[in-house]
Simulated assay, not measured.
Amino acid sequence: MDFNFTEEQEMVRDGLSRLVREQYDWETRRSAVESDAGWRPEIWAQLAELGILGMPFSEEDGGFGGGAVDAMIVMEEFGKGLVVEPFLPTVVCAGGFLKHAGTDAQREEHIGGIVDGSRVYAFAYAEPRGRYDLADLQTTAKKDGDGYVLNGHKAVVVGAPWASHLVVTARTSGGQRERDGVSVFVVANDAEGVVRRDYPTVDGRRASEVYFENVSVPADALIGEEGGALPLVEQVADEAVAALCAEACGAMKVAHAMTVDYSRQRKQFGVPIGKFQVLQHRMVDMFTEYEQSVSMTYLATLKLDAPEKERKRTASAAKVRIGQAARFVGQEAIQIHGGMGMTDELAIGSYFKRLTILSSEFGDVDHHMKRHIALA
């Protein structure tokens, strides 16, 4: 199998790497995260101008004919710079729903806005008692004439404070945890009855608790089949998992490089701590975890088009391996840096926080281990 990237993909990687390096340095990122907005809309506009937001979409939808591998490249570079702009919820998640199940009218309306950067989306799927079960929904969507009325509460909706629209999972029929009866809707973030409580997350992003109080949406807000959308939700979630694995690889690579560099500068007993063999072994272990994570990320990305069972098992296997590796690399980096590694003065603390959150986003290690075993 050929694992070489195309010339176009390498050009995109180089250009995006330069953008992150030159315009997303540590101090600039920290200033953006601590600002009232919490992100840099000008960076989002620049990503649109460079075609990054349109890469994974087909040319028929106004994109550039890429796919999951292109999204993987972008997410890895974003991981290196701890980019907070909402590429995952907007392009990977919302874009995934529209690509796989959107009508022609829906794709024309929404994907065009994603590609040109005028629309930002958040994926409202998690609920306070859901425990990573995508079918465990108390949010309801009841028929009302030609449309629907939504009621419920979605937790930790990442990117919602910046979003123009929300992609919402809701139950249109069936019991709370039944596979049948799950539907997906696009809802304007400023629709009447949508109430948000916004807050910063520990890893520097922004999220919201979103409450739907008799929110009316038209019939064309429904994406895919009414009551039969759970396989679609699972497919998009697996695509998000693969993208998160790529982001984790980028963050681990930088965390390892920072740790090696610090070990060459920090002296103890008159010599750099990098001279101590026990620390050398630990940094080699960090590098090994990173390399294994890259391999698993490639596998998960390439298997996104495989049959459902194979796709699910591979995505879960990757999430387990990368979740373990992210936790290990982050903790080892902090251990070698010492207590000052957790201060805001050093970037490594933020990499540790992001890697810790990445290990649990869209399902933690235990959840995906159980899922992988159940699919055996």
Rank of each mutant, 00 (worst) to 15 (best):
E34Y: 11
L98E: 06
A68I: 03
A135N: 11
V294P: 05
V20N: 03
W26E: 11
A248G: 05
K143Q: 14
S316N: 11
L150W: 12
R205T: 13
E178H: 11
D133N: 15
R266M: 11
D146S: 15
H368V: 04
K309C: 06
Q138A: 13
Q235R: 15
D238Q: 12
S360P: 10
R29P: 00
F352H: 15
W26S: 15
L358P: 02
S316D: 10
C93R: 06
S31P: 02
A68E: 14
D25F: 03
E213N: 14
A126N: 13
G102A: 10
V210T: 15
A105C: 12
D305G: 14
K312E: 14
A191S: 15
A243W: 04
R171M: 15
R321Y: 05
I348P: 05
D146R: 11
T6Y: 06
H281L: 11
E34C: 01
G204V: 11
I52D: 03
Y298V: 13
T301S: 09
F57I: 10
T356I: 00
I73W: 06
F123V: 01
Q292T: 09
G65T: 08
L88N: 12
T90K: 02
T288C: 09
I52G: 09
P89K: 13
T169V: 13
G227A: 08
D238I: 01
E178F: 06
D116C: 03
M75K: 09
A191C: 04
R40F: 07
A188N: 05
Q277K: 04
M286K: 12
G270E: 09
C249L: 03
T356K: 09
A126K: 13
G339K: 12
A376Q: 12
L16T: 08
R40N: 03
A122K: 07
N151F: 12
C93H: 13
V120E: 00
G63L: 07
G145T: 12
K353H: 05
M72C: 08
H281W: 12
